[in-house]
C-alpha cells in the first residue's frame, strides 16, 4: 500500500509541476491544486498506514491499544485542505478579475510592464 501511495504522490507532484510550467494561468492554478493534494497524500503516507484501527478507546479501557491509526496526521491534513481550499479560491477570483480587466491568460505577459494607457492617472 505504501508503495502505491508513494507512486501516487510522485505522479501528482510531477503532473502539478508540469501544469504549473504551462503558459496558462488557469493551468497554473490547477497545477497548484494538484500539488497541494499531493502534499496531503504525502503527510498521510508519512504517518504510517494502519488500516481498520481507528484511534478510539474501547469501552472499559483507559488507554489505546497499540497499533492504531495516527489521528494527528488526519487533523493536519484536514487543516491543510481547508487552508489550501481558501487560498486557491482566492487565487481563482484574482485570475477571474484579471480576465475581466482584459489580462491575457499568459503568465509571461504579467512580468511585462503595464502599457501606458492602462496606467491610472
Amino acid at each position: 500500500m505504501e508503495t502505491v501511495l508513494t507512486l501516487m504522490v510522485v505522479a501528482l507532484y510531477a503532473a502539478g509541476v508540469y501544469l504549473m510550467l504551462r503558459r496558462s494561468m488557469v493551468k497554473l492554478l490547477f497545477g497548484l491544486a494538484l500539488l497541494s493534494n499531493a502534499t496531503n497524500l504525502l503527510i498521510f503516507t508519512c504517518a504510517r498506514i494502519i488500516g481498520g484501527r481507528p484511534p478510539l478507546v474501547e469501552p472499559g479501557q483507559t488507554v489505546l491499544a497499540a497499533p492504531y491509526a495516527d489521528p494527528l496526521a488526519q487533523a493536519l491534513i484536514l487543516t491543510a485542505i481547508v487552508i489550501s481550499f481558501a487560498i486557491l479560491a482566492y487565487a481563482m477570483i484574482l485570475v477571474r478579475r484579471g480576465y475581466d480587466l482584459g489580462e491575457a491568460d499568459d503568465p509571461d505577459e504579467l512580468s511585462k510592464a503595464i502599457p501606458e494607457e492602462a496606467r491610472p492617472e
Binding site: 504549473m20 494561468m25 497554473l28 497548484l32 500539488l35 497541494s36 502534499t39 496531503n40 503527510i43 491543510a80 487552508i83 489550501s84 487560498i87 486557491l88 482566492y90 487565487a91 484574482l94 485570475v95 478579475r97 484579471g98 480587466l101 489580462e103 503568465p107 504579467l110 512580468s111 503595464i114 492602462a118 496606467r119 491610472p120
Partner: peptide, 22 residues
C-alpha cells in the same frame, strides 16, 4: 489592474512556498 497583476505574482510563488513548507 496593476494590483491584480501584483497580486497574482505574489500569490503563486507564496502558494508554491506553502506547498513546500507542508
Amino acid at each position: 489592474k496593476k494590483q491584480v497583476r501584483g497580486g497574482l505574482q505574489y500569490v503563486v510563488p507564496n502558494l508554491f512556498g506553502s506547498v513546500i513548507f507542508l
